[in-house]
Design a protein around this nucleic acid. Structure first.
Length: 681
RNA sequence: GGCGGAGUAGCUCAGUUGGUUAGAGCACCGGCUUCAUAAGCCGGGUGUCACCGGUUCAAGUCCGGUCUCCGCUACCA
């Protein structure tokens, strides 16, 4: 096989938070692939960087009263420590806030200009006059213009799912200062992606760079319509690079982030006397991006468009993975399933996570689920019970005998496992790690019975049979070594232990094809511990506490509603829609409200159903409301309730309210926009 | 709604171009063993292959339809 030259990237983590186990799916996936390619003898360069620009960083730095540079330097350090803790080994870890990146952005920009792909036009955006900054959608909250729910995000409604522009929000508020944003116009620069349609269509369909589901997705979602211009500038203030020929405007973070891949490579090249063009402009070099499905379109539309325009290599492959779920649910801070890398490392071994992810990862864009029990079972059964145990059970004998000079008859086990190497390698290369792990475990399953039937513990008792004992150890340890080699991309530490045990470091996939013979065996040292599910539970618990403490600075709405009301009044017997339709609920406006002198609990309300339609209703809300509080309000009334003659007059309906009674009564309101007389459906 | 994906043993999944009684691991049960990290070995599966219909000598596999679940639905890092 010829030697390949391969450049590999993982997505740049944003410098606004710590690495968590969800991020690690990607970095572990990539690191495994890189280690595999190197074992195969290929030249593989793995670069990454922190993604440092954008409003979020600027705001956070401001809040913490330090410079952006200080913030991102600290985040970079913490990210790199986390990655190192999980044996994710980059050749270079840079930052998008580097001089190299600025230069490259400039170069890409000029190429886009030269290709006449840049347009300029004003954009109206909400602006926070107090914080003096334009507001990205997620920094605005307000009332949904479609369904009227309060406190919804600026881009889409969490309640009804409608998407809209933050400009459409009713009563918008800036989440930065709480002030009411104003509409302000500014010039923005756009990349006219539609002009690249021909190229993009062909690349998506024929390059083979994309998984089929991704290609389908792009064709369905983007190529089906005219491609929108991509707004790649942001007006000051913005933490990023100012656009040289457009003072006061900055490149949007997603413009300079992917260029950061190249900038990071460039920094590595400069430090190692290499040429950037050999990695990014050579047809002999493959470029592989590993990303999550959330950033698919940046990497499969904009990025190829930019690379093409600027004359850089297009991605050979964009490997897209799904998200991590924990216990079948989305990770969340409140349940403690959003486990920070640092927290994980305090409680358990990173190798476990690497192996677990490997058993779950396929070449498809699928979410993967981490269940604590499954995790524990897999590690303990596969790694401890099958793989490590193979070495552990003969280790003591083997250090006395060493390995035989000739490989003994093992019934074809070694040869079969060697033959499986090709299939396992193909699975790794295709990112189908779950298949690779399955095959490897089949080999482990075949290896243990050999030891069982050879009964080395009996041989040990008879000094005359020392040669037989040595043969058994030779087979068992060579089978173990094959497993360690095949698992080396996933478990570098285990490979290292194996190398130390046998005095022969694992450096190449080829070592799996030939048994190791005639060498001494070092004393067996424990290679890996069993997982205790309690440790994992503590980790989850710890994560929950950490995030609760952290919410003090950024209060998020929390709900901790009691179950008392439902217990006090259980849900009534089921009714049909027809039953419900009998109740005619109407919006009504309180046009008059007055005390009834002789009544203890009642207020006399006059409700308008629009036009001349008036109803007189006696409502038992005297303890909770003053009449003047109610006048003008919209309420929900039961309009077709049979009139009831009361001591103080006729009541012609009922005002709906919740609560146990007395002062604890809450009249139902309705969101802005409803009209008296409208029926509630 | 549209697009994408999935539905096979209690759980996690494998089943290549349709071809013998549908498999593995885990869990569970029985037996054995003791070198090993309470590890290991042997044995134990009557699963409507989501459902309905079709093509075929033959369908988990191909075609059509139905149901359920999940994800995505771009100016969000």
């Amino acid at each position: 096989m010829s030697t390949r030259r391969i450049l590999v990237t993982s997505a740049l983590p944003y410098a606004n938070g710590p690495i968590h186990i969800g991020h690690l799916v990607e970095y572990i996936q990539t690191d495994i692939w890189v280690r595999f390619q190197r074992l195969q003898g290929h030249r593989c360069l793995y670069v990454c960087a922190d993604d440092t620009h954008g409003t979020a960083i600027m705001i956070r730095a401001r809040k913490e009263q330090r410079t952006e540079e200080e913030l991102i330097a600290q985040m970079s350090q913490s990210h790199q420590a986390d990655f190192a803790g999980f044996d994710v080994a980059f050749d270079h870890y840079g930052s998008t806030h580097s001089e190299e990146n600025r230069q490259l952005c400039h170069e890409f920009w000029q190429a886009l200009r030269a290709a006449d792909l840049v347009a300029e036009r004003p954009v109206s955006q909400l602006y926070d006059p107090e914080a003096e900054t334009f507001l990205a959608d997620r920094f605005v909250r307000g009332t949904c213009p479609i369904c009227g729910r309060h406190d919804q995000p600026g881009d889409n409604c969490g309640a009804c799912g409608a998407t809209y522009s933050p400009i459409d929000l009713i009563d918008p508020k800036s989440t930065l200062s709480g002030s009411t944003p104003v509409l302000k116009e500014a010039m923005h620069l756009f990349v006219e992606l539609e002009k690249l349609r021909g190229f993009l269509t062909e690349w998506i369909e024929t390059s083979g760079a994309l998984q089929t589901e991704t290609a389908n997705y792009l064709k369905g979602h983007f190529l089906g319509h005219e491609l929108r211009d991509w707004d790649i500038s942001r007006p000051a203030p913005y933490f990023g690079f100012e656009i040289p020929d457009s003072p006061g405007n900055y490149w949007y973070v997603w413009f300079d982030a992917p260029i950061g891949y190249i900038a990071s490579t460039l920094q590595w090249c400069q430090a190692n006397g290499e040429q950037l063009a050999d990695w990014w402009k050579s047809p002999d070099c493959e470029v592989h991006h590993f990303i999550g499905k959330d950033i698919t379109y940046f990497h499969t539309l904009f990025w190829p468009g930019m690379l093409k325009t600027a004359g850089y290599s297009l991605p050979t492959k964009v490997h897209i993975h799904g998200f991590l779920k924990v216990g079948g649910e989305k990770m969340s801070k409140s349940t403690g399933t959003l486990v920070a890398a640092e927290t994980y490392l305090k409680h358990t071994d990173p190798s476990y996570l690497r192996y677990f992810y490997a058993t779950k990862l396929t070449s498809r864009v699928e979410d993967l689920d981490l269940g604590l029990e499954e995790f524990t079972d897999k590690i303990n059964s596969d790694l401890i019970g099958k793989v490590v145990n193979l070495a552990s059970r003969v280790g003591k004998f083997a250090s006395g005998t060493g390995l035989a000079d000739r490989y003994p008859d093992d019934g074809g086990l070694f040869a079969a496992a060697a033959a499986a190497g090709e299939e396992i390698a193909q699975a790794y290369d295709a990112c189908d790690y779950s298949r690779a792990m399955r095959r490897i475990m089949e080999l482990a399953d075949a290896a243990n019975p050999f030891v069982e039937h050879a009964r080395p513990w009996d041989l040990k008792k008879d000094p005359a049979r020392v040669d037989e004992l040595r043969d058994v150890c030779t087979v068992a340890l060579n089978l173990f070594r094959q497993l360690a080699i095949y698992l080396a991309p996933v478990l570098p530490k285990l490979a290292q232990h194996c190398g130390e045990l046998l005095g022969d470091p694992i450096v190449s996939w080829q070592q799996s094809q030939t048994p190791l013979l005639g060498t001494a065996v070092n004393p067996f040292k424990r290679m890996m511990d069993r997982v205790q599910i309690e440790d994992l539970q503590k980790m989850i618990e710890d994560s929950r506490e950490v995030t609760e403490a952290a919410t003090d600075s950024a209060p998020a709405p929390t709900w901790n509603d009691s179950d008392e009301p439902l217990k006090a009044e259980p849900i009534a017997a089921e009714i049909s829609i027809d039953d419900f339709a009998k109740v005619d609920l109407r919006i009504a406006r309180v046009v008059a409200a007055e005390h009834v002198p002789e009544a203890n609990k009642l207020l006399k309300l006059t409700l308008s159903l629009g036009g001349e339609e008036r109803r007189q209703v006696f409502a038992g809300i005297k303890a909770a409301y003053q009449p003047e509080q109610l006048v003008g309000r919209l309420v929900v009334m039961v309009a077709n309730l049979a009139p009831r003659k009361m001591r103080f007059g006729l009541s012609e309906g009922m005002v709906t309210a919740a609560g146990p009674g007395g002062a604890e009564v809450f009249v139902l309101g309705v969101d802005e926009g409803a009209q008296p007389g409208q029926r509630v459906h």
